[in-house]
Each structure stands twice: as structure tokens, then as C-alpha cells.
């Protein structure tokens, strides 16, 4: 019930909506992918701190990314995007001065140089978004998923019965069921560490401060400054993702600074919490149930008419 209330109170204070009268500020992550170096310290720190079991030592063959995506065994996932981009509009690279002895390249000298190829390498550490309107939490039938006093979303593993409803409900593909264990697992935003006044393991381990942890209000201000700074220095593609409380999930508790479209990183471009449409779904289901009952009545009425004839 709190989650329906949660949906109605779009003030971005999920802890209050979740029933906490007196609570600490909403905590979250700001992941600034522009400074991510892809070292995966966050992935390792997360697995170590949370005792996340080994879930296959596979090589995906697609890039340096071998954990492939978020799931029951990967609560931080570092995406590697390697793309060659033809540098249209860039001045042709002039060969460096050779000092006379080395022949100029290309041989012949007067051929126009090949258009230079730029390799663009984007790295981003993905994580559970701790949505303001969290679909996983809304649909969980056992109440295993709950809202903490920090405004984050956490699974209670002693209650989850592994129905798996939360898995396809999440619009970001975060939460997943562990095969051998039968329950679902995801980032807890290190609920245990937060309770002890420490920052989450991934943020602690990140060497470049790509993962920043703090009160969400402060992170949003910091992110706005950062994106302005990047725009000023010519990185027009820099944009924030998930920071807007007016978006389809009411804003993410863990949001990002991206350097390309979200789908390039495997993120949905316009996620909407599925329960937005649930009132309409219940109305339609009610109408359909009524139609079914009416159809049954009609089936007998028509039979009675036929009999009388």
C-alpha cells in the first residue's frame, strides 16, 4: 500500500512516502562516466564486500567487458563501448615534421591523407538506480523488497520466495534471480555500510571519483555544475541521465553523466515505471471480468431461448 501512496506523492521523498517520519537525507550515487577509466575496482569491491558469489569466469569476446550486464551476481557493471567514428569535419592530420631524413608519409606526398578514424572509448559503471518509483518494489508480492530510511530499495533475502516478478518489472534490467539459490539479488547501496556511517564499497574503491556518493540533493547540484563545466570545455554530448524528478520513474537515486545516448550504454532512453499504468490495467481487467460474466449469462440466455423455440 505504501507504494501506491508513494506513486501519488511525487515529491521525490520516497523515505517519507515509505512511512519514515524522521529519516536521514535521501542518499544516492552520481556516476560521472566522463572520468571512468574502466578499472573495475567498483565491481570487485562490490563483490568482495557483499560476498557476491562467482558467477562464471567467461570471456564475452565483445570487449573488455566480461560481466556483460547487471544481474544476481553483478551489482556494479562496467560497460566498455569501443567505437570507431569517422572524424567528419576535423582538419586532416598533418604528418609530423620528419627532419628531412625520413621520407614523408604517405609515399608520393601529394595524395590526400585517408580520413582519420577516431576510436571512441566510453566506460561507465552501471548500478541499480534506486528509483523514486521503483517497479520492483511495487510488484513484489511478499514485501521482500522495501524502501529504506535512506530512500534506497533493498531485498530482504529471508522473505523473498523467488517468484521473480521484480525481474521483468525493472525497466533497467537490474535485479535478477540466482539459479542455485532461487532468490533475487541486487545492489543494496551498501545498506549495512550506510547504517554504520560509511560510504558504499564501490564509491570507496573508485580511484577517479567517477562514483560519487552523498545526499541526492547535493549530488544533483554537483552534477549540474559538472555538466556545465563539460559543456563549456566543448563536450557538447555530456548529459545527465536519471537525475530529473519529472522522468518516468520519478528520478533515480543513482544517476549518471553520460557522453552519448543512454542506449549506447545499454540503458533505456525513456524508462517508465510500469505501475504508472496499473490503475488503468485494473480497470481494464475489471471490465474484462464483467464481460466474461456477461458472456456466460448470455450463453445460458441464448440456450434458454433456443430451447423454448
Amino acid at each position: 500500500m505504501t507504494s501506491l501512496l508513494d506513486m501519488l506523492t511525487a515529491d521525490g521523498d520516497p523515505a517519507s512516502a515509505g512511512g519514515y517520519a524522521d529519516h536521514p537525507p535521501r542518499m544516492g550515487f552520481f556516476t560521472d562516466t566522463s572520468v571512468c577509466i574502466g578499472c573495475k575496482a567498483c565491481e570487485v569491491a562490490c563483490k568482495e564486500w557483499n560476498h557476491v558469489p562467482e558467477d562464471g569466469l567467461n570471456l564475452t569476446g565483445m570487449s573488455y567487458d566480461n560481466s556483460a550486464g547487471l544481474g544476481a551476481g553483478t551489482w556494479r557493471h562496467v560497460a566498455f563501448i569501443e567505437r570507431s567514428v569517422a572524424s567528419g569535419g576535423r582538419p586532416p592530420q598533418t604528418p609530423p615534421s620528419t627532419g628531412g631524413s625520413i621520407p614523408p608519409y604517405p609515399p608520393g606526398g601529394d595524395e590526400p591523407p585517408e580520413p582519420a578514424l577516431d576510436i571512441r572509448w566510453l566506460m561507465a559503471s552501471d548500478v541499480c538506480k534506486h528509483c523514486t518509483h521503483a517497479a520492483c518494489l511495487d510488484v513484489c508480492p511478499t514485501g521482500s523488497l522495501f524502501r529504506t530510511e535512506f530512500g534506497t530499495v533493498v531485498v530482504q533475502e529471508d522473505i523473498c520466495n523467488g517468484c521473480g516478478y521484480c525481474v521483468p518489472a525493472c525497466p533497467y534490467g537490474v535485479i535478477d534471480r540466482r539459479e542455485d539459490d532461487g532468490r533475487v539479488w541486487k545492489c543494496t547501496l551498501c545498506y549495512d555500510r550506510l547504517g554504520a556511517g560509511m560510504e558504499p564499497a564501490c564509491a570507496k574503491a573508485c580511484p577517479t571519483d567517477s562514483i560519487q556518493f552523498g545526499p541526492l540533493d547535493e549530488l544533483r547540484e554537483r552534477a549540474a555544475r559538472r555538466v556545465g563545466q563539460l559543456h563549456e570545455s566543448g563536450v557538447a554530448a555530456a548529459r545527465l541521465y536519471g537525475e530529473d524528478p519529472a522522468d518516468g520513474v520519478g528520478g533515480d537515486g543513482a544517476f549518471f553523466l553520460l557522453l552519448d545516448e543512454p542506449e549506447v550504454y545499454g540503458l533505456p532512453p525513456d524508462p517508465v515505471v510500469t505501475t504508472t499504468d496499473l490503475p488503468a490495467m485494473w480497470r481494464r481487467a475489471g471490465a474484462a471480468a464483467g464481460t466474461l460474466a456477461a458472456g456466460a449469462v448470455a450463453a445460458f440466455a441464448v440456450a434458454a431461448l433456443g430451447r423454448r423455440r
Binding site: 525481474v167 521483468p168 542506449e263 545499454g266
Partner: peptide, 9 residues
């Protein structure tokens, strides 16, 4: 997309 990987689980 990200290497053709699904967005949702």
C-alpha cells in the same frame, strides 16, 4: 544498443 544485449532482464 549495447552489443545487442537486452535492456531489460
Amino acid at each position: 544498443s549495447y552489443y545487442g544485449k537486452p535492456v531489460i532482464n
